[in-house]
Nucleic acid binder design. Sequence first.
DNA 1: ACCGACCTAAACACGA
DNA 2: GTCGTGTTTAGGTCGG
Length: 678
Amino acid sequence: MFQCVFSSSVLQPHRTSCLFKHLFYHSATPASQKQPEPIYSKKTEIQRQTVRALSVKLFIFSALQVARQLLLQQQQQQQVSGLKSPKRNDKQPALQVPVSVAMMTPQVITPQQMQQILQQQVLSPQQLQVLLQQQQALMLQQQLQEFYKKQQEQLQLQLLQQQHAGKQPKEQQQVATQQLAFQQQLLQMQQLQQQHLLSLQRQGLLTIQPGQPALPLQPLTQGMIPAELQQLWKEVTSAHTPEEATGNNHSSLDLTTTCVSSSAPSKTSLIMNPHASTNGQLSVHTPKRESLPHEEHPHSHPLYGHGVCKWPGCEAVCEDFQSFLKHLNSEHALDDRSTAQCRVQMQVVQQLELQLAKDKERLQAMMTHLHVKSTEPKTAPQPLNLVSSVTLSKSASEASPQSLPHTPTTPTAPITPVTQGPSVITTTSMHTVGPIRRRYSDKYNVPISSADIAQNQEFYKNAEVRPPFTYASLIRQAILESPEKQLTLNEIYNWFTRMFAYFRRNAATWKNAVRHNLSLHKCFVRVENVKGAVWTVDEVEFQKRRPQKISGNPSLIKNMQSSHAYCTPLNAALQASMAENSIPLYTTASMGNPSLGTLASAMREELNGAMEHTNSNESDSSPGRSPLQAAHPVHVKEEPLDPEEAEGPLSLVTTANHSPDFDQDRDYEDEPVNEDME
DNA sequence: ACCGACCTAAACACGA
DNA sequence: GTCGTGTTTAGGTCGG
C-alpha cells in the first residue's frame, strides 16, 4: 500500500490509472464505513445530500474568495496610496495568470466556474475534497482576519480620538501593545500552521525534489497580501528593531522557538507601519520568517540557493545574494503574477498540511489496528518503515504540487497537477463540442487516494469529472452489474449517464466511443435476444487483454502480489489495511452500494487478472482469483442468455439494487443525454 | 523508433 | 429520410 502510494508519486499520468485501480482495490473501506446504512433505497437521499453539501461548499468557497478578494483590494489600495514600491502593472500580470487556474485567481471564482472546474476535471475528487477542506480552514482564518481587522479599526479609532484629545504617546503605546496582542493571537495561528510546515520540511517532504524549483518554505498565509509581503520584506531587510519583549509573552504556544523569535520583530514593524497595521492581515508577520534567516545568514534565503532564485518557476541565476535580492525585488515584485504564485504556494502548503493530517490519521489508525500503542503518533517518532511510509505517501500527494511551481509563461493548473491544465479547461466545459484529446489523458492523470473511493462514487455521479476508467472497463462493469450480465446498447448508455455525470454530456462522442469499443473488443459479445441484441462480456477475453495495462508497472504488481499472497512481518500493516479495506468492501457491496462494490470488485478482478497473467498464463482457470471473481460467470460467450448463470454475491447485489437506482436516476439520465446528443 | 492500449472522429451499412 | 445500431478506418496521445 505504501509502496503503491509511493508509486503514484513517481507514476506518470498514464500509470496512475493502474495505480488507481490498485488503490481502488483496497480502499473502499473508509468510505464505505462512512455509509453505515448503505441501504440502497436511501441512495437517493444520500445523493441529494451530497449534492446539497457540495453546493453549499461551493457557495462557501466562492464567498470566501470574494471576501478574500475584497481584502486584497483593500490592501492593494492602501499599498498604492501609501507605499513607495508598489508598481502595479495591471497589464502585465493578467496574461500570466490563466483564468482557468482557479486557485491562483480565487477572486474570480464563482460557483459556476467551480462547476466548470469540476467538469473540466481540473481537480480530482480527492483534490476537490482537499480544496473544500482548505476552504473551510480558510474560512476560519478569514473569520480571524475579520476579527483582527475589526480590532485594528477599533484601535485606530481609539488612536485617532486620543490624538485628537491630545493624549500622550504613552497611550498610543498602550494601544500599540494591544495591537501587538492581537497580532500575537493571529501569529499563534500562523505559527501553528507554520509548525506543520516545518514538520513537513523536517521530514524532507518539502525538499524532496532537489532538481525542481521545488517548494521553498514559504509563508502559508491565507490572507497574504503581496504588497505587504514586499513591504515587510523591505522593512525587515532594512531596519528591524528588536522589540520582542512585548511580543514574547505568549507562552501558551507550543511553537518552535524559531517561529516565535523570528516573528516577534515583525510585530514591531507592523505596528510601526500604519499601512500594515490598518490592514491587519495576519499574514503580515509571516514574511518575517523567511526574511529573518537571511538576516542571520545572509545567504540562506529560502528563495535563494545554489546561486539560483528558488522562486517557484523562476530559477534565475544570481551570482551573489545582493543580485538575488535585486532580482527578487524586480522580477518578483508585487504584481498579479507574484500574487498568484504566492497563492499557489499557499495552496501547496496547505494541501501538504492537509495531506499530512490525513496521513497522520491513517497512521494512527494503522497503529491502532496493529495494537501498536502509539502515545504520540503525531510527533512522528515512528519506526523506520513507518516513517518512510508516511514520507512516501506524503510524497505521493506532493507529486501533484510538484507541478505547481510553474513558470510564468506556462501556467498550469495549480494545486491540481491532475489535469493537464489549460487545454482541458477551455475546451471541455464551455463548448460541449469537442472534448480535446488531451482530456482523455487526464483520466489517467487523476490521482486517487485510497481514502475517497466511495466518495468518488458519489462524486462521479454528481460532478462532471471524467472517470479514470477505460471505456472497455466501464462497459464491462455496466454489463456485469446488470442482473443478467447482459445489456442492450441503450442500457449501457443509461448506465453511463446514471453512474457518471461526465457522461451526461457530449453524448454523441462517448456513445460513439462505447459503440466503437463494443465492436472493437473481442471481449464484448453481441447476442441476439428476444428483445433485440444484447451485449455480454467474455470474461476470458477481457482478462486476456488486461495484463498489458498493469504489467507495465512491475513494482505495482509486486505490491499487489505481496499484499495478496505474502505476509511478511513488515507487510503486516499493509495486510491489515488491505484486509480492512477489502472485507468491508464486500459487505458494502452486497449490502447497499452496488455500483461501488461491483466497480471495486471489477477493479479487483482486473488486478487479479493481471496478476494471474504475470504469475502464470493460464487465463481460463482461476486459481488465484478472488471469491468475487470466481463467482462471475466466466464463459458468458457460451451461454450468455442463461440467467441462471448469474449467481453469486455480485449478481445478487446488482439485482437487488439495480432497478431502484435506475428509476431514480432516470430523471437526469434521459434528458441530458438527449439534449446533448446531436 | 516501435508497439500496444486507448481515445476520438467519422464514414458507412443496415434495419426499423 | 431519419434514427439507432453496429462496423470499420484513420489519426492522435501516451507509456513501455
